[in-house]
Design a protein around this nucleic acid. Structure first.
Lengths: 230, 230
DNA sequence: GCGGACAAGATCGTATACAATCGTGTCTGC
DNA sequence: GCAGACACGATTGTATACGATCTTGTCCGC
């Protein structure tokens, strides 16, 4: 199950997409430097294209652009992490409710296959892919809710959540496997908006509580602070 | 009362900012073409900079980029208009509540001056400026609520709302003058989160109901549809 | 007179070249 | 041995030139 969307191969969108994919799957860790020359050489395009792609990712806060320094995969702060999940808590439960009300049999079938893919990836020892699919599940819900604008926001928040998980993940808690998505699917299939909303609310709280925002102070803000600790 | 932020004069951010300002104040109407050469000449920079600025605005959906055609000030569809205000309805009431809980005397003073500026602009016959300030009021609330992430979303939604108002405004209903902001200010000053949340909810509903999403089908999606009506 | 093909102009898309800036290594004077 | 200044290398910032694509005006055949 890969994303249906395809771009013209060498376009800036295509490159942004592939970079985002790598970040989602934790192949590019927070803090990794994305040199324009390097990226351009890898994809066989000029820096012009790479710059556009990086700017786009920068706007989504997936990478941080430092003037005259370059682009780096973002390292969300604990504060940012909290805010991202607070925003999700405002947007997603109500969206899940709408999705439950609007879901068609076709949607249910698609989500069923999606969850199966999540499980497969996890059992196939591809936690990165599982994580990405897990995020896409949330995006699918927004699509089913027929809310393009909110969906765009959720796409952004899910992407940043992936970075947050990379940094603040408490432990390999088999979280993806918690069955939250299965429960949501059942609520959707039953067109039970109330349950869907509550399940999503709980799911997001579970996610936050699986993070350790206290003891893992994002690998340094200015580096001077990083070493001022003791 | 101008925005404190200033950029390095000819940077892409500065140009994006100035273009956004013009759009906010309805000096650039929906549909207006933003030619790279033209904009570059006006600001005295090369197309490279202009492209970056336009891409940024495109990402915020303030302008629509058409391949090999150019950039145009966006023309939100009725559907988009509805979605934007649905998103605002999810984000802003709760944010207003937080703002009420956190507002300091300094914040209250600032908002008071802000509202005065709104009134002044309106009475000075500058409805564009009044509209922009009115939007900024909502953004200030998100700042007071200390929610940067949600604030970014609201900035985007307010900007798009300005376009929506330009297109679907039912009538010169003295809406800005409805006193909703004054009431919100009072709730904030009293640290009354419940009232603030309810007032914001009502304010957004008022805004939506002042639009005519039915009879004003955004000056054409593809133009073929625009004329297929009768 | 009308429809389609063709060509010219305009505009955007991309690559490359040059300038500016920053980080870092080295060298000198103390 | 150390602090400061200097200079070099690397990387990004910006401008410009060239190529691709689309629009539009014109011409020819019907």
């Amino acid at each position: 199950m890969d994303d249906g969307v395809q771009f013209s191969e060498g376009s800036s969108e295509a490159i942004a997409h592939r970079l985002a994919l790598a970040i989602h799957e934790h192949r590019l860790p927070p803090g990794a430097k994305l040199s324009e020359d390097e990226v351009g050489e890898i994809f066989g395009v000029s820096r012009t294209i790479v710059r556009a792609a990086l700017q786009r990712l920068g706007h989504d806060r997936l990478v941080t652009l430092k003037r005259n320094r370059g682009a780096f995969v973002s390292q969300p702060t604990p504060r940012e992490a909290r805010e991202v999940f607070e925003a999700r808590a405002l947007l997603e439960p109500r969206t899940a409710r709408s999705a439950a009300q609007r879901a068609t049999p076709k949607d249910i079938a698609l989500l069923t296959r999606h969850i199966e893919a999540e499980h497969s990836a996890l059992h196939a020892g591809e936690p990165g892919k599982a994580l990405r699919l897990s995020g896409q599940f949330h995006i699918e819900l927004a699509r089913i809710a027929d809310q393009d604008t909110i969906r765009d926001f959720i796409i952004q928040l899910v992407a940043r959540s992936s970075l947050i998980i990379a940094l603040f993940w408490r432990r390999r808690q088999a979280l993806c496997e918690s069955g939250a998505h299965d429960a949501l699917l059942r609520a959707l299939a039953a067109h039970d908006g109330d349950s869907a909303e509550e399940l999503m609310k709980g799911h997001l709280l579970d996610l936050v509580s699986s993070l350790d925002l206290r003891n893992a102070p994002a690998p340094a803000y200015t580096l001077s602070e990083a070493l001022a600790q003791r």
